[in-house]
């Protein structure tokens, strides 16, 4: 029972960490996470070489291409981020359809234990995330969410910070998409739908539990754990998962209202709320 719960958590660790970078730290409405999740999986699954770590790197690359597109549309094309992300979603959903050629694509089975792969990938991702958050770039992502004008005043390239942050976030989403498909044994075009709500719910839960304004890896980890523990609990109590999306929306709403009421010095309401 615990292993299946842990298995689910590990599948989503890279995605929630990526969402933490773009949604929580940078405060950017990064809907392109959905297409990055799909395209990472599709690009990797259809790539000719499936040896060793190649599919994982290709999934990261697929996500990065999506992130690069949406952030460049925003920073170089001067298109508002939300619109850029929606356009990117449409574009990469179409490209994924062309790459797959059909609605579903089976993946070849791995020789390694799937749980072992998930553990290794999650540890590597969390270690990289931990050090990235302590780095100049990691702090820059949080500064961008706090004051986007900061970089222009200090002759730091905000284009680099935004594109870098969104590329990293979407790469992680791409990797997560591939892990999910690896676990299912197939890729289909609907896997990305609605995952943004999962990200927001997990991040709001993480933020409500950890209660800090500092950037810390504890926020996404706690959030994703709380999300799946709650889901598991609801399933066990007989709750039908078809109502889970509505439940998630209500949960986010309730948590945000509670947080705003209890707003303290350590927890600021912000324009994205996650």
């Amino acid at each position: 029972m615990i292993e299946s719960l842990l298995h689910q958590i590990l599948l989503y660790v890279p995605l929630i960490l990526g969402a933490y970078f773009s949604l929580s730290l940078m405060k950017v409405p990064d809907l392109s996470l959905e297409s990055a999740y799909l395209f990472g999986a599709v690009f990797s699954a259809t790539f000719p070489c499936q040896q060793g770590v190649t599919p994982f790197l290709i999934a990261l690359l697929g996500g990065a291409v999506v992130g690069l597109t949406s952030s460049m549309l925003n920073k170089i094309g001067n298109i508002p981020f939300l619109l850029a992300a929606i356009l990117t979603n449409g574009l990469f959903h179409g490209i994924s359809q062309i790459l797959l050629g059909k609605a579903m694509f089976s993946l070849s089975a791995t020789t390694q234990s799937e749980f072992f792969i998930l553990c290794v990938v999650s540890i590597v991702v969390l270690l990289v995330g931990f050090f990235l958050l302590k780095s100049h770039l990691g702090y820059s992502l949080a500064i961008y969410g706090n004051n986007p004008h900061f970089f222009k005043q200090h002759a730091v390239s905000d284009r680099y910070v935004v594109i870098g942050g969104i590329v990293i976030a979407n790469s992680l989403a791409g990797l997560s998409g591939y892990l999910f498909c690896l676990s299912n044994g197939f890729v289909d075009l609907t896997i990305g739908f609605g995952i943004i709500l999962l990200c927001i719910t997990a991040l709001v839960l993480g933020r409500a539990i950890v209660r800090t304004n500092k950037q810390t890896i504890l926020c996404p980890i706690t959030g994703v754990c709380a999300y799946f523990v709650l889901q598991d609990f609801l399933v066990r109590t007989g709750f039908s998962l078809k109502y889970f999306n509505a439940f998630q929306a209500l949960l986010v709403l309730g948590t945000l209202i509670l947080l705003r009421k209890k707003q303290s010095q350590t927890l600021l309401a912000d324009h994205l709320g996650v």
Partner: peptide, 11 residues
């Protein structure tokens, strides 16, 4: 921070 904040340099 330089013009391009490094992901490798720790704060």
């Amino acid at each position: 921070f330089g013009t391009y904040p490094s992901p490798l340099k720790q704060m």
